[in-house]
């Protein structure tokens, strides 16, 4: 947890140091029920994950005969080959297109809006209105507006295209992105903006050369967060596409499971394959994601 590191040192260590014995004692005893719950839940989290992984390496025959938690006697990658041959690559590419095509523009325009709201919100009624609109937007669930979105996409003649998924995804990524980014831009010292202005920089120049580098961690957080929810999105592809060529991974998982429900190892291999890319991104961007997700907890 990066929040751990970002807690002010005086709060984390100073009061603790002189009283270490007292606190140590408090901790050791207080830990018990919480520790038991924590460890039990750790097992509950890990067991299904372990089961998914080992089962995806078993043959179907081996799966039915062996203990579900036993390691596969002859590990096989056949299930993975089968999933990949079931057009997995195409669905993967579709998911990449949708995710990248939605996240990058969404974060770019959200960043511009957040910058404008922080820099001009006190003078412009338009910007204040936009800000309230986005705050209200946080409360709109995607499910509730899916029918009109469906209608709009049909009227735009985009039904059954990847663009149909991308456009609403961008819109629904905006409110949260603007909120997080504007909170970070607000933390930039005003003197820096002032000195940029003195040097004759335009607002666009200030945005690019001052704000952009300073809020980069927040941008990464927002990109990962939105990327995760769009990559895993199910409702938009379900409603707005129909042909197999336009399927994204979650939808493909669902249809694959419908076809091969008896072949549990293959179904689980498909689960692993769709999750691996996110896992990779998570491992790379974990620190920033976690710190971003719990940002704002300093109250």
């Amino acid at each position: 947890m990066t929040t751990t590191l970002s807690t002010p040192p005086d709060q984390a260590t100073r009061p603790r140091a002189p009283h270490r014995p007292v606190l140590g004692g408090r901790r050791r005893r207080f830990n018990l029920p919480a520790g038991v719950a924590g460890l039990i839940w750790l097992a509950i989290v890990l067991i299904p994950l372990y089961w998914i992984l080992i089962t995806s390496l078993k043959t179907q025959a081996n799966y039915f005969l062996s203990n579900p938690f036993a390691l596969p006697t002859e590990p096989t990658l056949d299930n993975y080959r089968m999933v990949i041959e079931a057009d997995f690559v195409r669905y993967f590419v579709n998911s990449v297109i949708v995710t990248a095509g939605a996240v990058l523009p969404a974060v770019a325009i959200s960043f511009m809006a957040a910058y404008a709201i922080v820099r001009g919100g006190h003078r412009s009624r338009f910007l204040r209105g936009v800000n309230s609109l986005f705050l209200m937007g946080l409360a709109i669930p995607l499910q509730a507006v899916i029918i009109p979105v469906f209608l709009i996409i049909i009227r735009l003649r985009m039904y059954d295209t990847l663009m149909a998924i991308i456009l609403p995804s961008i819109a629904f990524a905006i409110p949260l992105s603007v909120l997080v980014l504007s909170n970070f831009i607000r933390d930039v010292p005003r003197e820096l903006f002032e000195s940029m202005r003195m040097d004759g920089a335009s607002e666009w120049g200030t945005l690019r050369h001052l704000a952009l580098p300073l809020v980069r961690p927040a941008l990464v957080t927002v990109i990962i967060y939105n990327g995760l929810s769009i990559w895993n999105g199910f409702l938009l592809p379900l409603v707005l596409t129909q042909s197999p060529t336009q399927r994204t991974l979650p939808l493909a998982l669902w249809t694959f499971q419908g076809q091969y429900s008896i072949n549990v190892p293959a179904v689980l291999a498909s689960v692993v394959l769709t999750t691996l890319p996110i896992l990779a991104v998570y491992v790379l961007g974990r620190r920033q994601l976690l710190s971003g997700l719990t940002a704002g907890f300093s109250k």
Binding site: I109, S110, M112, A113, Y115, A116, I117, F126, L127, V130, L133, F134, G137, I140, V145, V149, I152, L167, P168, I170, A171, F172, I174, P175, V178, E203, W204, L207
Partner: peptide
């Protein structure tokens, strides 16, 4: 700078 996000959100939100 806020216009693109505003238009996008109005259109699909």
């Amino acid at each position: 700078l806020a216009v693109p996000a505003f238009l996008m959100f109005v259109a699909f939100g």
